[in-house]
Design a protein around this nucleic acid. Structure first.
Lengths: 139, 139
DNA sequence: TATTGTTATACTCTATAACTATA
DNA sequence: TATAGTTATAGAGTATAACAATA
């Protein structure tokens, strides 16, 4: 494998995420009525695909710090977007899941992210989009 | 295209960058002798592939804010990692380039990033690595 | 009038460590 | 002893706006 493309990879990925974030952020006033911010949105999206799950599981899936998620979930719970129920198997943790309000909120976030992603992937052919998704989903 | 993989894409990419950053950061004490931080490193790598260039060009390539880069370059110049020369074509800006010290520093950063990327892409086959690099380089 | 670069500011995100409760 | 979660805090990163100089 040649040398240069490896660094280009890291730089391109960073730019891709930055552009995606900028597009979503520009629309934030329209949909982020709870002011949970970009990471709050990612947490809800992740939870929607993994619920019910203890906090540690979400931290692993997102590759993020548990201390950060702890405060975030406290905030999301206060806004009644997520709920915690007792975990029979391990009393150190509770199981997190989306409330009906949280589910509705995730649907709105997903539609915004979907639109932003479509714009960013626009220049690619359909087959390349599929290919890219396949490769990245294995990371 | 199915619905779910799109959000998985954004979440996976975020996690990929987070893992890459964590690996590089863990080795920072060994190579970041100038304490320029992860973004400083990305700026130097970008500049190494685009020099000589005015600041605005680097900001575009990285998708980052010019105000942020302005302070960063002032810091990098103070550490004699980059230099600015007059831009004949446009006197509002000056052309940025790496000093010999900067070039040497970039080589060290690249070797660390290369190692971290190899670890992260480890589970993929050789052909998949090449394919992924090709797709991402077009974003 | 628009663009390049600088400075200032308030805000958010992040890493880290110390602590408790349970396994 | 190890792990799940919480809290606190210092530091790094970010968006935004206002400004001067040049195009």
């Amino acid at each position: 494998m040649p040398d240069e493309p490896q660094f280009a990879l890291a730089l391109q990925i960073d730019r891709l995420m930055r552009r995606l974030n900028a597009r979503v952020h520009a629309q934030a006033p329209l949909f982020d009525t709870e002011k949970i911010g970009p990471i709050g949105g990612m947490v809800l999206m992740t939870l929607s695909e993994a619920q019910p799950a203890p906090m540690q599981r979400i931290a692993e899936l997102m590759g993020r710090d548990k201390a950060q998620l702890s405060r975030l979930f406290a905030n999301l719970e206060r806004r009644e977007l997520v709920q915690r129920i007792a975990n029979e198997e391990d009393q150190r943790s509770r199981l997190l899941s989306l409330t009906p309000r949280g589910e509705a909120f995730v649907r709105r976030i997903k539609s915004v992210v979907k639109g932003a992603l479509e714009e960013i992937l626009e220049p690619l052919s359909e087959s390349e989009k599929g290919e890219r998704l396949r490769l990245l989903s294995r990371t």
